[in-house]
Structures are given as structure tokens and as C-alpha cells.
Design a protein around this nucleic acid. Sequence first.
DNA 1: GGGATCTTACTCGGATAGAGCGTGTCCGAGTGCTGAGGG
DNA 2: CCCTCAGCACTCGGACACGCTCTATCCGAGTAAGATCCC
Lengths: 166, 166
Amino acid sequence: MKLGEGVEQAIHSVAVLAGLSEGGVLSAAAIAEFHGVSVSYLLKHLQALSGAGILDTVPGPKGGYRLARLPKDISLLDIVLAVEGSAPAFRCAEIRQRGPNPLPGKYFTKPCGISAAMLAAERVYRAELAKTAIADVLADLAESDDGSIAARGCAFLALNERRTNR
Amino acid sequence: MKLGEGVEQAIHSVAVLAGLSEGGVLSAAAIAEFHGVSVSYLLKHLQALSGAGILDTVPGPKGGYRLARLPKDISLLDIVLAVEGSAPAFRCAEIRQRGPNPLPGKYFTKPCGISAAMLAAERVYRAELAKTAIADVLADLAESDDGSIAARGCAFLALNERRTNR
DNA sequence: GGGATCTTACTCGGATAGAGCGTGTCCGAGTGCTGAGGG
DNA sequence: CCCTCAGCACTCGGACACGCTCTATCCGAGTAAGATCCC
């Protein structure tokens, strides 16, 4: 029951990317510097997000990343699944079918009740994450912020945002 | 986002232990054989359950494990937390406070909205697990079972259950 | 002066080492049973 | 025959290697910008 550290980096990266204007991109190096993390490592997760269709990439000089969808259409679940993989956390190995005197498989047509309960809890978890979009997170932040955090973000964007003709 | 393999073993072990009669115990070796898993490894998790107050241990020859509470008072969450630890899956490292131009900490009195959303989802997950008790799992199994699975379990218990005077 | 072309520098992308944690195993401490010996 | 006591075998408990995933890093392929050269 542990989430990798890259999840936090990925979510924050998406949040920052949500702040740039139409047609603007941000290089991975800039995002990494803003968060004080390793560039190479952040790239790994940005690539995962790109592969999942959450981010678009612009290659070449003056290239970088930008959102592929609107912030309101990117949920936390999308990001978590892209980075951590979509495999369920609980995997039933059907150990009840092992042991010295295993029953024929026909008696185990119904999935294990334990597995069902665990997966049900996981569905609830994912549903909760799916309810929260990046746009919601930004809205909550703007509400509690007196302007300082937003100002720092804007200053960073003004310095590092790149316009692209595509 | 991954649960250890021991969680499944632990839950099934508790389910088996729920089937023995008042005052009966089951050795770790018997449980491991029934599930076809390593004895030494299962012991690790049984000890965790014991330390969490879910199981009682009876030392010495003819000793073993038994439930410390009624099956209806043991939730899946109890078992998962005992085996996996109670630390939250998502840990906020506050990377938004890092980087080249960090703001003073006083601007970050409110917890990170991202962290709040992730932890909220986790609370929902745990609440769902807490709703399901071992007794519920056994009841569901008895409902879909034609008797074969229960019969195998009873045969195993009759062979390996030990009476203790304590 | 304008346009095409070549070089160049910068970007992302995938393949490659190292660390931490889960997995699997082992040996030691503790305890109740069991048998022998004495009363 | 019954009680006491010592030995013992079996149990759980904690300490010890191994493998895999996550973390962190490097080098290579691709591309658009910019300078250069020709018309």
C-alpha cells in the first residue's frame, strides 16, 4: 500500500502546465527546476503522461510539454493510472485453490469473495480520485491563496513559457 | 499502487481461523500447508496480526493461533493495516515549496490541495474496507457454495484443530 | 535583398546502473507435554 | 499407585540473505531555429 514519489511530481507538473496560455509549452527542465527535482527522473513520468494522452509533446528546440486536454477533463485518477499503471493493487492468487487437497476448479466459478471485496474498495478509491479534476485543485488553491503562490507561478511562467506556432 | 502478496495470505488465514471452534487453535504450519505457501513467510504476517491484536498466540507444543475477536469484529481494513502498515499510500513531500525561489513557509499554512484530495480518496478506500468484516466474507461464501468448499475446510479443521485448556 | 540549404543546438525518447523494500529463509528463546524415578 | 522432576520436542519470535520494483542517470534520435551561401 504505497504510491511512488513520482505521482506527486506528475500531478504538480500537470497543475503547472494548466497555468500556461493557449499555444504555450514548457520544457521538462523548467518544470523540474521549478519543483527542485531531477530532470531525468521527471522526464520518465512526463513521458508516461504523454503516452497516456494527457500531455502533448512538441519536439525540437523551443519545444516542451503542454496539456492535451482541458484541466477540467484531467482527473487525478488519469494521472495516477498513467504513472503507476492501471493494474489493481490487490491481486488474488487464488491460494484457496492450492494446498494438499485442492478441489476441482469447477467449484470456484464464483470469484473469491475476499478478492471481490478488495477490488470493490479499490473501485471506490478510483471513483473518488476520478471525481477530482486538476481544475478543481487549482480552484481550491486560488480560494485559500492570498495571491502570493499564484504570483510566483505567473512569474515563473512568464520567464519560461514558450510560444509555439502549432 | 500495489499491495503485498502477504495481504491475501493474511486474510485467508484469518478466514480459516474463524472456522475453528471455541478454544481451538491452529498451528502456522497447518495454515501454510492448507494454502500451499511458505511456513516461514506466513509466520511473518501472522506475527503482525498478533501484534495488532487480531490474533492470539498459544505458545508451546499443541500451540498455535486463534482469533482474538469475533469474526464480525475483524474488518478487512484491520488486516490490511496490520500487514501493510498504517502509513498513508500518498505522501506529500511539499515539492511546491522547493525550487529556486521558494516562498516563505507562512504562505503554505493550508495543506496542499493535491495531498488533501489524495488522502480523501484514501479515507474512502479505508472506509469501504472497514465496512466488510470477515464474518461477511464467510457469509457470502456460504451463500454461493454448494457445500464442497465448506466440507473441505471442515475436514481440514477436524484433522488439524487442537483443543487447548486455556 | 530574398530564398533555399546546411549546420547546429536544443528537445524529447528509450536504454542503462544503483538503492530501498518486499519476499523468502534461517536459527534461537520459550513453553507445555512426556517419560522416568522416587516415595 | 501417585507425585515430582528433568528432558525434550514442538511452538512462536526475531534476525538474516535474495530478488524485484522504484529511483536516478546517461546517451542517442529527431527537429525546428538560425546562420550561411547562392541567385
